[in-house]
């Protein structure tokens, strides 16, 4: 589903990713771990198409197509979803209005009928209920005045509604209490299917107790320095990231 080859990325003239290779197949869950500043959030944001990064080398194929040639909105309509580390507050636009527009943009793009207001409401109620999310959130302005936990739940709610093929969670667990963490992981686990792939970017192993990955990759200094299965995450939890830097050097 996703094939990343020798991806090199700079931001403001500084090289952040120094050659990433990563292959993700449908049905798989990959965890990307690493210390602060290792480039793991950059990787997530580049995949989503954030304009502040320049790809200087390498390629990214998404379902065989050149992902880097696609605008951020086209990526989203093609089924890529990134849950933001810092979801943006937008006054004056309700979640419901925004998400209906987003969902219908995607449905239209994929040749499906657009949902009317009532159908959308039914669907969003169903998803909110499934995720144990307060439906009142729908009528509030996007993330405006939301607590950190509410913002992250809103990201998961959006993901559940948009049903992506490839979901990338950018440190969705940071700053969450255990209840919110369960909401987030239940939401992700509900989405797991043989047709979908999930990339979980996280600093801590804790989330991986709830979302059990098939593969774990450790990013350090802009490179993947180690890959393994879920046991690697436990090893990192035990030893910290310190031992990797010396290995990588």
């Amino acid at each position: 589903m996703l094939d990343i080859k020798d991806l090199q990325v700079t931001a403001e003239g500084k090289q952040i990713l120094k050659g990433i290779d990563l292959h993700v197949k449908a049905g798989e869950v990959h965890a990307i771990m690493g210390p602060n500043g290792s480039g793991k959030s950059t990787l997530a944001r580049v995949l989503a198409g954030h304009p502040e990064y320049q790809v200087t080398s390498g390629e990214v194929l998404y379902e065989g197509r050149d992902l880097l040639e696609m605008d951020p909105d086209e990526r989203a309509r093609e089924g890529l979803f990134m849950a933001f580390q810092y979801p943006v507050e937008i006054a004056g636009v309700t979640n419901a209005y925004f998400l209906k527009a987003a969902l219908n943009a995607k449905r239209k793009h994929q040749g499906q009928v657009e949902l009317d207001a009532i159908e959308f409401l039914q669907l969003s109620r169903e998803k909110a209920k499934m995720l144990n999310i307060d439906q009142g959130m729908l009528n509030r302005a996007i993330n405006e005045g939301f607590s950190g936990g509410e913002k992250k739940r809103n990201e998961i709610f959006q993901m559940a509604l948009l049903e992506p093929k490839l979901a990338i969670l950018d440190e969705t667990d940071s700053g969450l209490d255990i209840d919110a963490l369960k909401v987030v992981s239940d939401g992700v686990n509900a989405l797991r299917s043989p047709d979908r792939a999930i990339i979980v970017v996280t600093h801590y192993q804790r989330l991986l107790n709830y979302i059990v990955p098939d593969f774990v990759h450790v990013l350090s200094g802009g490179r993947i320095v180690k890959s393994g299965d879920k046991r690697l995450a436990l090893e990192l939890e035990e030893k910290g990231y310190g031992w990797l830097d010396t290995n990588a050097a």
């Binding site: 198409g49 909105d73 979803f81 925004f98 527009a101 987003a102 995607k106 996007i142």
Partner: peptide, 15 residues
């Protein structure tokens, strides 16, 4: 940031 957020959910730049 707001523009990118909306685009990352599938809205075109103009939308």
């Amino acid at each position: 940031d707001a523009l990118f957020y909306l685009r990352a959910r599938g809205l075109t730049f103009l939308e």
